[in-house]
């Protein structure tokens, strides 16, 4: 009985994992072509971006409009790390390590990108101790601009010309074994990100985050260390986004500061508000839906930019709380509760 229940409770997780394995197998045996694979990878990356922003904008109720800054930091740091170690380049010359180790170095470099992005998150977290709402929103936009102009003026990493060489690292992974490495890493990154956020939101810290969202002063009185909770939340959010940036850079094979401007931040915000504030499953669903819709409507060319904003207007008119509101999948379909828990 006990094992049966356990199996049932984990059924959803098993379904997700087997779904990922299925996609990887389909990619391996060339059932789905490279284009569809690439769309699926961008879906995974967008899930990481939207769930990590949801932590701040949804769960904590702050208003961060500069999420792309952390994507940028993560993308650049992980690209530079992996290229410096694994590929011939202008700065250190020959690679330090043999190409066989790319499989190990790549995830490490993505992780390093995440860590540095988390440190960059302090830039937003510290001002958030004193301000919130619209004022913090302006600070986050400022951080976005600071990061972009900083990189544009660093000619060591190419300035506005952008930085490349990551494809060599990715290529040496494929030379080691011909399996869809990037798909595997994106899947791992996505699962890691969603899992961490789920654990975090349901932890004591997560309760503090929700308390700050409801009423910061009351939370402070109820002995929530608001500054600490904010610092950790901002750092976690930007760190996970930085990891998404690292994956993004290696999938595209080229980074350029203007790819991470305010428009990218807006895209992230659209995904969060589309999914519903504070809903983890909503953020995942909306990231998948949004990426899919963008690709699907590509043949419509200019009309696409009439249809997508119009869809958003309609959605906000008839369902202002977003696809999921602040509910999780288990709240909408209570029967699912038998198979998984989101909170």
């Amino acid at each position: 009985m006990e094992t049966g229940n356990k199996l049932q409770r984990n059924a959803f997780a098993l379904a997700v994992i087997s779904g990922c394995v299925l996609i990887i197998l389909l990619a391996q045996f060339k059932v789905i072509n490279l284009y569809i694979q690439s769309v699926i990878m961008f879906m995974g990356i967008n899930i990481m971006i939207s769930t990590s922003l949801n932590l701040v904008n949804g769960n904590m109720g702050e208003f961060s409009c500069g999420h792309a800054a952390f994507l940028c930091v993560g993308a650049y740091v992980s690209s530079i790390t992996s290229v410096l170690i694994m590929a011939p380049n202008d700065i250190t010359g020959a690679p330090f390590l043999p190409p066989e180790l790319a499989v190990l170095v790549f995830p490490i470099s993505v992780f390093v990108g995440g860590v540095v992005a988390a440190l960059a998150g302090i830039l937003v977290a510290l001002p958030s101790f004193k301000t919130r709402g619209d004022y913090l929103a302006i600070i986050t936009i400022a951080v976005n601009y600071m990061v972009i102009s900083g990189i544009e003026n660093l000619s060591v990493v190419g300035g506005p010309r952008g930085f490349m060489g990551m494809k060599k690292v990715v290529k040496s992974m494929y030379e080691l074994a011909d399996i869809p490495w990037m798909m595997i890493f994106v899947a791992l990154g996505t699962i890691f990100c969603v899992l961490i956020i789920r654990r975090y939101v349901s932890s004591t810290y997560g309760k503090g985050v929700n308390a700050i969202c409801q009423d910061e002063i009351a939370a402070e009185i109820m002995s929530v260390n608001t500054n600490k909770v904010k610092l950790v939340t901002f750092m976690l959010s930007s760190g996970l986004c930085g990891m998404a940036g690292g994956l993004f850079a290696h999938v595209v094979g080229y980074v350029n500061p203007q790819s991470f401007n305010i428009l990218k931040s807006t895209e992230a915000m659209v995904m969060v508000y589309l999914g519903g504030m504070g809903s983890l499953s909503g953020a995942v669903i909306s990231a998948v839906f949004f990426t899919f819709l963008l690709e699907l409507l590509r043949p419509l060319q200019i009309l696409k930019w009439v249809i997508i904003p119009f869809t958003l207007v309609l959605l906000m008119q008839f369902r202002p709380e977003g696809i999921m509101g602040n509910k999780e999948l288990t709240d909408v379909f209570p029967k699912l509760r038998k198979y998984c828990r989101f909170k």
């Binding site: 490279l34 284009y35 690439s38």
Partner: peptide, 16 residues
């Protein structure tokens, strides 16, 4: 006019 879209488009044209 986006880098990641240009990659997607190239893959779509080549593979699909």
């Amino acid at each position: 006019s986006k880098a990641e879209s240009a990659v997607n488009v190239a893959l779509k044209l080549i593979d699909q």
